[in-house]
Design a protein around this nucleic acid. Sequence first.
DNA 1: TCAATCCTTGGCTATTATGCCAAATGGCCA
DNA 2: TGGCCATTTGGCATAATAGCCAAGGATTGA
Lengths: 106, 106
Amino acid sequence: MEARKQALYDARARIIKALAHPTRLAIVDELSRRRRCVHELTEMIGADMSTVSKHLTVLKASGIVEDSKRGAQVYYQLRCPCVLNFFSCVETVMKLNAERDMALAR
Amino acid sequence: MEARKQALYDARARIIKALAHPTRLAIVDELSRRRRCVHELTEMIGADMSTVSKHLTVLKASGIVEDSKRGAQVYYQLRCPCVLNFFSCVETVMKLNAERDMALAR
DNA sequence: TCAATCCTTGGCTATTATGCCAAATGGCCA
DNA sequence: TGGCCATTTGGCATAATAGCCAAGGATTGA
């Protein structure tokens, strides 16, 4: 494959990969409602705060979220709310899969 | 997090993860034009055929593509063309990132 | 039937991702 | 200043991915 194409797919994959984790999807979902600080997200998710912080680092590095400090707290918010569009397609795939599995079970 | 929510995010992540690889994005892109057999995709990508076959297995397991045999050949096609919608959002993120990087460099 | 083609699977290694704990950093307030 | 709270970073162990080669089916065609 041409280097040019390859670079494009690499760049795209980097962003999509940032979304390819349940915890990060939960974070994005929550941020679609309102900005949240790490502490709030940690409570919601129920993992170690360092774990949540690292997931946020991944999302931030990919450009999906951005942060803003307010005193000792760091608030995160969606930078590209269009990522929420992903979900409708994903639901479609899930529905098709469910139908397929139903048919197979019959 | 509730088990119900967790299961939903897990399911979503499984599908998104299937797209989170440059080679698989290249495959999806190609299949958006027309169905292709493994051999054709292998030529296009320039990796070992076993590698391409495994990527196709991942895409198929997630429900993004489906296959149909024609003699000795296995043709793959998109099952949910809506996955192409992902790209426009990804491009938006990439554009925002580029602008941010420009601003930082100045 | 034999050989060639197409594809998948097994096996192995190297790389990357994930999650926790512990430690370090930074801000706030008494 | 000292101590607390919020967050990030380092370190490490474990698990998941990716890619190649080699081997195993399956199908076509001579």
